[in-house]
Amino acid sequence: MMEQSLTVLVSRLLAHRVIPRSDALARRALLDDAFRAELDQRLAAVGLRLVENPYAEHIAVALLPAMTEPVFGSGEAWLNNNLGLPRDGVALLVIVWALIILPKRERQISRVEAGREGQHDMFGAQKPLETGDTVSVGISEDALYADFGKQLGGRTRFAANLGRLVNLGFLNRRNKWLEEGPMLDLMIDYAALAPRIIEGALADVLGRRQALLQEAAASAPAAATDNSQVENA
């Protein structure tokens, strides 16, 4: 029975690339130690590993670190991805990850820490972490282009790369509003990249953008109050 379940799960991971954590076999892989050990062994035999984190709503597979050079090459032959993304497409991916996943993770971590402070349930640590629409927010496509479009090749290149990211499952796109896709929180190593972004070249740009958003949010209630005073008068 385990043999058949493992075969089905590995086949689905390879065919669909991502599987929701709520799926029965995905949950078994995350909760059943014996099943997970056998799954890891099977994936490792072909140079792969399971990719999951408690903040993401999906699981996927990726290359083992030892397989990076044999698959992607080195030196002048090195490939920075196996998805057909050009360099400006990879840059756009990093930017949307920083704008969507970094704030989402901050909210998730703060809510977990707040819950632990007031947690008196002895089994509280085993409860699932909060994910989904309550913590993940989107970004405006027009605002994204206004901030970074020219640096990423102009309107045509920006639109083409954005379409690639949507097709690859990194983003969901509705009426020029971009939201997290199933791949976005899995295929970039948060622990490795977050400090580089927060403390690096994008820090000032993203900081200024966040300040503008906060100013706009702060002015909205004031405007509503002024309007209500006019109506009451």
Rank of each mutant, 00 (worst) to 15 (best):
P86S: 11
P128F: 03
A91R: 04
G124V: 04
L102W: 04
P65L: 05
Q126P: 00
A114D: 13
R105K: 04
L83Q: 07
A125V: 03
A125M: 07
N81V: 03
W97F: 14
L64G: 05
Q119R: 11
I101T: 03
S74T: 15
G124W: 02
N82W: 00
A125D: 13
M67N: 12
F72L: 15
I100K: 03
R105V: 06
V61Y: 08
A98C: 01
I101Y: 02
G124Q: 00
S74H: 07
L99M: 10
E106V: 01
E76A: 09
A125N: 13
I109C: 00
P103E: 08
W78T: 12
V90C: 14
E69S: 06
P86I: 02
V94K: 06
G115H: 03
L63C: 04
E117G: 14
S110H: 05
L79W: 02
W97G: 02
G73P: 03
V90H: 14
M122F: 08
I109P: 07
M67E: 07
F72K: 06
W78C: 08
W97D: 08
P70I: 10
G89S: 15
P65F: 11
A60E: 06
A66P: 08
L102H: 03
R105P: 00
L102K: 04
A125Q: 09
K127A: 11
V112F: 14
R116H: 13
I95A: 05
S74G: 05
A60F: 00
G73S: 07
R105Y: 04
R87I: 08
N80G: 10
A60T: 05
A125C: 10
E69R: 12
N81Y: 04
R105W: 01
N80T: 07
I101A: 09
M67P: 04
A91N: 05
E69V: 15
G89H: 02
Q108K: 09
I100D: 06
V90Y: 09
V71C: 04
P70G: 06
S110Y: 01
W78L: 14
R105H: 12
L64P: 00
P86Y: 00
R111C: 07
P128K: 15
P70Q: 06
V90I: 11
L92D: 14
G73A: 04
E69D: 15
P103M: 00
A114K: 07
V61I: 15
Q119M: 15
L93A: 10
P128N: 10
